[in-house]
Amino acid sequence: QTIHNGDQTYHYDNPEEAIKVAQKLAKIYNLTVTVKGNTVQVH
């Protein structure tokens, strides 16, 4: 599972963990989380 947060990319073995982290980032920075296959984008 990969999270793209602007210019930063994070890799997680656990998809659920990746989505949790993405949602935390989204709340902190007031962003949107988009899940596309194995990629979670925060923008």
Rank of each mutant, 00 (worst) to 15 (best):
E17N: 04
G6R: 12
Y29V: 15
K20Q: 08
H4W: 08
V35F: 01
A26G: 06
K24Q: 11
G6C: 15
T2F: 12
V42K: 01
V33K: 00
I3V: 12
H43D: 03
D13P: 09
Y29N: 14
T9P: 02
A22G: 06
V21R: 04
N30H: 13
H43S: 07
T32C: 15
L31E: 09
Y10S: 03
A18G: 01
K20F: 08
G6H: 14
G6D: 09
Y10T: 03
T34H: 05
N30A: 05
V40W: 00
K36R: 11
E16K: 06
A26T: 08
I19G: 04
G37D: 07
E16M: 07
P15Q: 07
D13I: 06
D7Q: 07
Q23M: 09
Q41A: 06
I28R: 07
T32H: 12
N30C: 11
Q1P: 12
V42I: 11
I28Q: 10
V40R: 00
N5V: 13
K36D: 11
Y12A: 03
N30D: 12
I28M: 13
V21Q: 12
N14M: 04
N5S: 12
A22Q: 02
G37Q: 03
K20H: 06
Y29R: 14
N14F: 04
N38V: 05
A22L: 04
T2I: 11
P15F: 08
E16N: 06
Y29S: 15
K24V: 12
Q41R: 12
Y29T: 15
Q8L: 13
V40I: 12
I19N: 09
P15G: 05
E16S: 06
T9W: 15
I19R: 13
H11Y: 14
T2M: 12
L25Q: 00
Y12D: 01
K20Y: 07
Q8I: 15
K24W: 15
N5T: 11
H43V: 07
G37Y: 02
D13E: 09
T39P: 00
A18N: 00
H4N: 08
D13G: 06
G6P: 09
Y29H: 15
H4M: 08
Y10I: 06
L25K: 01
V33I: 08
N38M: 04
K36N: 13
Q8S: 10
Q23I: 12
N14P: 03
T32K: 06
Q8K: 13
D7F: 14
K20N: 06
V21M: 14
V40L: 05
L31N: 05
Q1G: 12
E17L: 10
A26Y: 04
K36I: 15
D7H: 15
T9C: 15
V35R: 02
N38Y: 02
E16W: 10
I28T: 05
K27V: 06
G37N: 04
I19D: 04
Q41P: 00
A26E: 14
N38A: 06
N14E: 03
N38H: 05
L25S: 00
A22Y: 02
N5L: 13
T39I: 12
V40C: 02
D7S: 12
N5F: 14
V35I: 06
N14W: 05
V21P: 00
G6T: 10
T34L: 05
K20T: 06
V35T: 03
K20C: 15
V42A: 01
Y29F: 11
H43A: 05
N38W: 02
D7I: 14
V42R: 00
V42N: 00
Q41T: 15
E17V: 10
Y12N: 01
Q1K: 12
T32F: 06
I28W: 13
D13M: 08
D7C: 15
V35P: 01
G6S: 11
D7K: 08
E16I: 07
I3N: 11
T34G: 01
T32L: 10
A18F: 03
D7L: 14
E16L: 08
N5C: 15
K24D: 07
T34P: 00
G6W: 14
H43L: 06
V42M: 02
P15V: 10
Y12Q: 01
V35L: 04
N5G: 10
T9A: 05
K27F: 08
T2G: 13
K20M: 09
V42Q: 01
N30Y: 12
L25P: 01
Q23H: 09
V35M: 02
A26L: 05
I3P: 10
P15H: 14
G6I: 11
Q1A: 13
D7R: 08
N38T: 07
T34E: 07
L31F: 08
L25V: 01
E16H: 07
A18M: 03
Q1D: 12
V21D: 03
E16Y: 09
Y12E: 02
E16V: 06
V21H: 09
K24G: 04
N5Y: 13
T2R: 11
A26K: 13
T2Q: 11
T34F: 05
V40S: 00
N5H: 14
L25F: 03
V33Y: 00
I3H: 12
K20V: 05
T2L: 12
H4E: 09
V21W: 11
D13F: 05
K27I: 07
T9Q: 08
Y10Q: 03
V35S: 02
Y29A: 15
V35Y: 01
L31W: 09
Y29W: 07
D13R: 10
K27W: 05
T34W: 03
V40A: 01
T34N: 03
V21Y: 06
V40D: 00
H4L: 09
T9K: 05
D13K: 12
V40H: 01
H11P: 02
V33L: 03
Q23G: 06
T34M: 04
H11F: 13
N14Q: 03
Y29C: 15
A18Y: 02
V40E: 00
Q1E: 11
A22R: 01
G6V: 10
N5Q: 12
N14R: 03
T2W: 07
Q8H: 15
K27Y: 09
A22N: 00
Y29M: 14
V21G: 07
A22F: 03
I19C: 13
K24Y: 14
Q8R: 14
Q23R: 12
I28H: 10
Q1W: 02
H11S: 08
T32S: 09
T34I: 08
T32A: 08
H11L: 07
K36M: 13
H43T: 07
N38D: 03
Y29E: 15
T34S: 08
I3Y: 04
Y12R: 00
A22K: 01
I28N: 08
T39L: 07
P15Y: 10
N5W: 14
N14L: 04
G37A: 04
D7P: 09
I3D: 12
N38P: 02
V33M: 02
V21E: 10
K27P: 09
I3G: 11
I28A: 04
H11I: 14
E16Q: 09
T39A: 06
D7V: 14
A18K: 00
Q41V: 15
V42C: 05
L31A: 10
N30L: 05
Q41K: 10
P15N: 09
A26D: 07
Q23E: 13
T32D: 09
I28D: 15
N5A: 12
N38Q: 05
T2A: 12
T32I: 13
V42G: 01
G37W: 02
V35N: 01
G6Y: 13
K27N: 09
Y12W: 03
T2C: 14
T32Q: 09
H11R: 06
V42T: 02
K36A: 09
E16T: 07
L31I: 12
H11E: 12
Q1H: 12
L31H: 14
Y12T: 03
P15M: 10
L31Q: 05
D13Q: 10
A26Q: 11
Q41H: 09
Q23V: 10
N30W: 14
K20A: 11
L25H: 01
A18I: 02
D13W: 05
Q8C: 15
H4T: 08
Q1Y: 04
Y12K: 01
A26N: 07
L25N: 01
V33F: 01
T2H: 14
V42H: 01
N38L: 05
V40F: 01
N14A: 04
Q8A: 11
K27C: 15
E16G: 06
Q41E: 09
D13T: 09
V42E: 01
D7G: 09
Q23S: 09
Q41C: 15
V21K: 04
Y29G: 15
V33H: 00
H4V: 09
Y12L: 05
L31C: 14
T9G: 03
Y12F: 15
K27S: 08
K24N: 07
I3F: 05
G37H: 03
Q8W: 15
K27G: 05
N38R: 05
D13Y: 04
A22E: 01
H4R: 10
H4K: 09
Q1R: 11
H11A: 06
A18L: 03
N14C: 10
P15S: 06
K36S: 14
E17Y: 07
T9L: 14
K20D: 05
E17W: 08
A18H: 01
L31S: 06
A18R: 01
L31P: 04
I19K: 12
K27T: 09
G6E: 10
Q8N: 09
T32V: 13
L25Y: 02
